[in-house]
Design a protein around this nucleic acid. Structure first.
Lengths: 221, 221
DNA sequence: AATGTGTCATTGTGATCACAAAAACAATAG
DNA sequence: CTATTGTTTTTGTGATCACAATGACACATT
């Protein structure tokens, strides 16, 4: 099918390209939780052979972004209250730490671009653009976390985000994003004051508010 | 090669069986950090075709137990001081929580079998049996953590253990296990007193002591 | 109409082949 | 003996095929 991609330079291997595409779709709501995902179906859709899809899907299963059932069927896992509580806990203990570790690497320019992302977030919120909100929110958080220079912790957090991505999308699609509050401004202040403790609190508060909203709306126990 | 394993009952798929074997070897020191791991080599060694090995290795790479270099070569990652610090942090914030969540599910019988494991640990320590010590230490911790009924957090911790396993083995092989202290007795006490806060402290202390010993011996900065 | 049953299509798994890149090795020049 | 070049082998990647198991679907029976 795709033969002569020698001149196509360095896009890495095929399965890694497929992995990135699937990852985006999972993070920003391209898949519907519970609906089965088939190797041959994805292969046809992405115009590659089943082989690289197989490896990409296997990797996403290991990262708990997809779930392999006993039926050997692969789906985006459904969210439960228990799982959601675990995710909130993990976020609370890991993400403020990453932010604090990133703080020394921020200068005025980086704070400015962070602020620019936050303005995009506000725009998307006011327009009820759920996917845009999620993309920019992800950019905001991971621009910070990647600067922490902590690859092991970053991998844990990345896996967590993959797990609540599809669920968030569902919630925002149903209830809208217009009545979300922007908790990032407090964090931006902390960056400018070089205040590690304040930054920790701000990130924790951002997580708490966002997740509480989602949990209350969609996971009534 | 392996054809008629239909009567071999339910060992699951081949790649999962391979995965478990490789996982054990990684956890308890069957691989040497830095040395390359080849698909065909493992396939021949485990007497399966390269295909299931490929999937198992891909999964272990996703769990960060193995590392895929730009050369496309796969190795057990080497430990660095930075990585080790991240691992200690993650263990400190995740494992005491798992233990506390497991506490309500412990009755006298389970505490007794936990104590039995601890006695095995002491035995291995006095004999300088590094692999036995690691196997039983793993059993001790994960008997607790699995009872927490927190699959998401458990997966994070399991990934962490896969990452420092080979390194621990190296250290114990070089410096012995005889002068380790048994920190598990305090935890067992907390179990019997149903003392969640005390259990948290005991697990944290166990992590701190063990890891500090390793870090000081092998990762002099 | 509801339920059971047999048929057929689809799916994941494993095996094997082809190929290009990388590594290991051998031979040569300094 | 050291460094470098050329050759050979090994390796990961992707494609394709075979197969058993699962799911979907139409049909018959009550």
């Amino acid at each position: 099918m795709n033969k002569a991609l020698s001149p196509e330079a360095r896009a890495g291997t095929t399965h890694e390209r497929v992995y990135r595409q699937l990852r985006q779709r999972i993070l920003f709501g391209g898949f519907h939780p519970g609906r089965p995902v088939t190797l041959r179906g994805l292969a046809e859709e992405l115009e590659v052979s089943p082989m690289p899809v197989r490896e990409a899907v296997r990797r996403l299963i290991a990262e708990r972004a997809l779930e392999l059932h006993d039926n050997r069927r692969v789906t985006v896992p459904a969210m439960t209250k228990e799982r959601f509580d675990e995710i909130i806990f993990a976020r609370h203990v890991l993400e403020p730490e990453l932010a604090a570790r990133a703080l020394p690497h921020f200068d005025a320019a980086r704070i400015a671009s962070l602020r620019a992302i936050d303005e995009d977030i506000d725009l998307c919120m006011s327009r009820d653009d759920a996917e845009g909100y999620m993309r920019n929110n992800h950019r905001f958080h991971f621009m910070i976390y990647e600067l922490a220079e902590a690859r092991t912790l970053l991998a844990l957090v990345a896996s967590i985000w993959l797990q609540f991505g599809p669920f968030m999308r569902l919630v925002y699609g149903r209830f809208g994003t217009a009545n979300l509050q922007d908790q990032h401004l407090v964090a931006l202040d902390a960056f400018e004051r070089n205040d590690a403790a304040g930054l920790r609190r701000a990130i924790a508060e951002d997580i708490g508010q966002g997740m509480r909203f989602i949990g209350e709306e969609a996971l009534a126990e």
